[in-house]
């Protein structure tokens, strides 16, 4: 700061700049708050309305202009109604099992593959690397028809296996863990080997426990994408009780548009787990951001 002021007499245009900046600070703060506030209202309105609307009765939601808060009482029974109309309990369980299966599967297959890439004497490494990379460039939508035919042929429609099998491995997860393994201190690995730890023991009792942040990042990304999946569960399931919660709430909307409060209650139930993940797992999510470079 002081160095700037001493330079001031030398550079004439420099004189104007700090002068402008100083009185400009306060109003620009107010301006920042103002723009942020407006953006906040717009961006968070759907979140607000989802939550508040889920507690509003039909007198509020179906009038015009609609109420923006529960003017005619709070209606928590929207939640029990949502649970009654669609087999939401079954669907919740399906979603949980699907998410657990995909998340655990991806963690295991990714950890094994990343281990081979970093620590093992792998032949044709470049080739395998390209194979894993290429899986990230093929959009699932472009191969969804044969996948659907395959799962139907195997009689796996309406099963957890049908919902999870296609997603049990991921290039993204492999590269995320590979990145973390690459920074593992080699001396530790050598020490473990001298102590007689084989590959399996080294991987599961030393390497993975020490790579917890990256594993957590992978787990959160896998869980988020599995829980939020829409296209595949729509195809892979038919009976309402076998569908995931995502399909359930979208069906709820088309079947009962007269009761938005109940529909929104279903949405809130589906949203709850991912909301927790995003609020409390944000730093792990950020860790995985850059690995998605080749989606």
């Amino acid at each position: 700061m002081t160095s700037v002021t001493t330079k001031e007499p030398v550079a004439t245009p420099g004189k104007a700049a700090p002068k402008k900046a100083r009185p400009g600070r306060r109003p620009s703060n107010i301006g920042t708050y103002l723009i942020l506030g407006v953006l906040f209202l717009i961006v968070l309105f759907p979140v607000y309305y989802g939550l508040v609307g889920s507690l509003m009765g039909e007198r509020d939601t179906n009038s015009f202009p609609p109420a923006l808060y529960p003017e005619n009482g709070v209606h928590p029974e929207n939640y029990s109604k949502a649970l009654d109309i669609i087999p939401l309990g079954d669907q919740y369980l399906t979603s949980v099992l699907q998410t657990l299966g995909i998340t655990l599967g991806q963690m295991i297959t990714s950890a094994l593959a990343a281990y081979a890439f970093v620590f093992l004497n792998l032949r044709w490494r470049g080739f395998w690397f390209a194979v894993f990379l290429s899986t990230m460039m093929i959009p699932f939508e472009s191969i969804i028809i044969p996948n659907y035919l395959l799962i139907s042929q195997w009689g796996l429609k309406d099963t957890i296996a049908g919902l999870t099998l296609p997603f049990l491995a991921t290039g993204f997860g492999t590269f995320l863990l590979r990145q973390s393994f690459l920074s593992f201190p080699m001396e530790l690995r050598d020490a473990a080997r001298v102590d007689g730890a084989g590959h399996v023991r080294f991987l599961f009792s030393i390497l993975l426990p020490l790579s917890r942040p990256s594993l957590a990042a992978l787990g959160i990304w896998s869980a988020l994408s599995a829980w939020n999946m829409y296209f595949w569960p729509l195809l892979a399931t038919e009976a309402p009780e076998n569908q995931t919660i995502q399909i359930g709430i979208s069906q709820l909307q088309s079947s009962d548009s007269d009761s938005p409060g109940m529909v929104l209650a279903g949405v809130m139930l589906a949203l709850f787990p991912t909301l927790l993940l995003v609020i409390f797992g944000q730093r792990f999510i950020v860790r995985g951001l850059t690995t998605g470079a080749v989606k």
């Binding site: 961006v43 759907p46 979140v47 999946m229 829409y230 399909i247 979208s250 949203l271 991912t274 609020i279």
Partner: peptide, 16 residues
């Protein structure tokens, strides 16, 4: 607060 929309799935956001 601004990160919250990230938690929404296509289905939940679309229904809202």
């Amino acid at each position: 607060a601004f990160a919250l929309p990230f938690a929404f799935s296509v289905a939940t956001a679309s229904v809202i």
